[in-house]
């Protein structure tokens, strides 16, 4: 089934609408697995997944590791900090070394845009992009879509504001692609310094006023404001950023009762979001994290399972994927 159709997961665009919908359908099944008393299925027994994280990550890596364990895959961790990479080994040599140990997939996070794409030319294993530079973070977008779909019943026709540092955000790029692919209308809310230099590639509108937008949208998606941005003269100060673009308590009170608040984490409470907003009933931040595991199970399964693999092991039924 899927293995030959889609060998890597690099971007939402590569996946396409069909692919996104396939993953979301699969995720339903794995959410069910995650709710079992023993949340584990043997579908990827004997498969090996390697983690290759060139950039620090706690939540994404834990989420992938949990997903792999629940699918009974073996995993190995290539710790960049203590490896030959720090002795000047090239990207190509590193990934070929890992592959030689016998892996079926490599989950890569890299500070450089495009590194996962480059790796695909040197490997037979599947490559999963766990975030590359400012470029893409497709599993984050998939878990966000899943979370929104569960909350709102659907994404088509919804208005979604993505607020904050779009320019430097792989989460924003992947979410723009995923939300618009599923029929949502996306408005970017940011000062001009935090927008990409060109908006031509993106099917979005832009606003420089969060106050004009928050009353009219179904979703407010807040991005992390990196503390170093003010040193690059992108904003005068974090205080001014919070005053003009932060989801303050006062702004949160103006949200519609059904307006969903999202954040990919880690949050800077008091900067892009007021301290108590994530605890509001509208906020789905913990749902995002929870669904992340099931989405990543779906992604690993989609790439690594073969025709012969029963989807749910001994007692399971086949999925429609």
């Amino acid at each position: 089934m899927s293995r030959t159709a889609q060998r890597h997961l690099l971007t939402i665009d590569d996946l396409g609408v069909e692919g996104v919908q396939r993953i979301l359908r699969l995720t339903d099944s794995f959410v069910e697995v995650s709710e079992r008393r023993i949340p584990k299925v043997p579908v990827l027994r004997g498969r090996t997944v390697a983690w290759l994280f060139y950039e620090d990550s706690t939540r994404t890596r834990l989420s992938f590791e949990t997903a792999a364990k629940r699918l009974s895959a073996d995993s190995m961790n290539f710790s960049v900090g203590s490896s030959a990479v720090n002795k000047g080994e090239s990207l190509r040599d590193t990934v070929q070394t890992i592959e030689a140990m016998g892996v079926d997939a490599i989950v890569v996070r890299h500070k450089s845009a495009g590194a996962p794409k480059q790796i695909t030319q040197w490997l037979d294993a599947s490559v999963i992009n766990a975030g590359d530079g400012w470029h893409a973070h497709p599993t984050q977008a998939l878990l966000d879509c899943y979370t929104l779909r569960a909350r709102l019943g659907g994404i088509d026709g919804r208005r979604i504001a993505i607020v904050g540092d779009i320019k430097h955000s792989r989460v924003a790029r992947s979410n723009i692609a995923a939300f618009t692919a599923l029929g949502a209308e996306v408005v970017l809310v940011a000062p001009p310094t935090l927008l990409p230099p060109s908006l031509v590639p993106f099917d979005v509108t832009v606003s420089h006023s969060i106050d004009e937008v928050i009353g009219e949208v179904d979703v407010v998606y807040l991005l992390r404001m990196q503390l170093e941005r003010m040193h690059e003269a992108l904003v005068p100060s974090l205080r001014e950023y919070t005053a003009t673009y932060g989801l303050t308590a006062a702004r949160a009170r103006r949200l519609g009762p059904d307006t969903v608040v999202m954040h990919p984490g880690p949050m800077n409470r008091g900067v892009e979001v007021a301290a108590d907003v994530p605890q509001m009933p509208n906020a789905v931040v913990t749902d995002q994290v929870r669904n992340g595991v099931a989405v990543r199970m779906a992604v690993l399964f989609d790439l690594l399972a073969t025709e012969a693999d029963p989807v749910f092991g001994d007692d399971g039924e086949e999925t429609d994927a």
Partner: peptide, 15 residues
Amino acid sequence: HEGEWSSRLGIPGQP
């Protein structure tokens, strides 16, 4: 080059 493609690819550009 800073422009449409750098924005799409997430590669920092030079204007």
